[in-house]
């Protein structure tokens, strides 16, 4: 694992892994969407409304997966001081927030016909909204710390990393909110090795999850490459400025 913390090696792998993840991800996401929406069956109770599941569930999982990435990367940065881990955490924040937002929006659109309401303050919906706000807070904190020149190289500041770690408390709360408390949202359909979902829904959904996960991975890799390129550009500018000032002294 430590071998991948070398930025040069990371860049060599990311150079071909980024377009591969993005292209494959978009293809699989489009395939699952076409499969589920045009060829898949309608639900016995909900009818065609159920087809939004192929967008809602993958984005919900990746909204949570994004914060899990931030938390694990922050842990690695705090303990082992790997700047690349900090960059991964920073890179995962925006796509995670976008996925959480899509999950909330599609959930609201689904809630109107299925439950009869756009929004309720039950445990699942509220904790998912909190996750979205946590992403906003994380990005604001990261930008503020960066503006003050904190954070080694392009990693996170210590405060940002701790925030990423502490915010992970919300992830199990989201997952168990439908088990611990009475909620309008139904319990999970897919749990370890079991599915209350017929195979005709499950297969396109799994393809969708794989596709959106690849898109998420591709976006994180692309953003990490941008962060590394920024760092190199800044270092080059610093060297240039230093050389210019030493030349001036020579005169």
């Amino acid at each position: 694992m430590h071998g991948f913390a070398n930025p040069a090696r990371f860049l060599r792998i990311a150079r071909w892994a980024t377009p591969l993840c993005l292209l494959l991800g978009v293809a699989l996401a489009a395939l699952s969407m076409g499969w589920g929406v045009f060829f898949g069956p309608a639900d016995a109770l909900q009818g065609d409304t159920v087809r939004i599941v192929y967008l809602h569930v993958p984005t919900a999982w990746l909204g949570m997966g994004g914060w899990s990435t931030i938390a694990i990367a922050s842990f690695c940065e705090i303990v082992w001081r790997h700047p690349l881990a900090g960059m991964a955490a920073r890179a995962a924040a925006l796509p995670g927030a976008v996925f959480a937002a899509i999950c909330l929006i599609t959930g609201s659109i689904w809630g109107r016909p299925a439950w009869g309401t756009w929004w309720v303050w039950d445990g699942r919906l509220t904790s998912m909204l909190v996750l979205f706000f946590l992403y906003c807070g994380y990005m604001a904190l990261d930008a503020a710390a960066r503006g003050q020149g904190q954070g080694a190289g392009q990693g996170q500041s210590r405060m940002t990393a701790l925030f990423g770690l502490v915010g992970a408390v919300n992830i199990p709360v989201i997952h168990y909110s439908v088990t611990w408390w009475n909620s309008l949202h139904q319990p999970p359909s897919i749990t370890m090795g079991k599915s209350a979902m017929a195979a005709a829904f499950l297969w396109p959904l799994l393809v969708a999850v794989l596709g959106y996960s690849l898109i998420f991975g591709g976006v994180v890799l692309a953003r990490m490459r941008t962060i590394l390129a920024d760092e190199q550009a800044e270092a080059r500018l610093r060297r240039k400025a230093m050389r210019a000032s030493s030349d001036a002294e020579g005169w």
Binding site: P41, A42, D43, A44, L45, Q46, V50, V53, A114, W115, G116, T117, V120, L184, Q186, P187, P188, S189, A196, M197, A198, A200, F201
Partner: peptide, 15 residues
């Protein structure tokens, strides 16, 4: 006001 709460099962109509 009434809100419908459905369960976690998804089944095609034919089945």
């Amino acid at each position: 006001n009434l809100l419908a709460k459905h369960d976690e099962k998804y089944v095609p109509r034919e089945m």
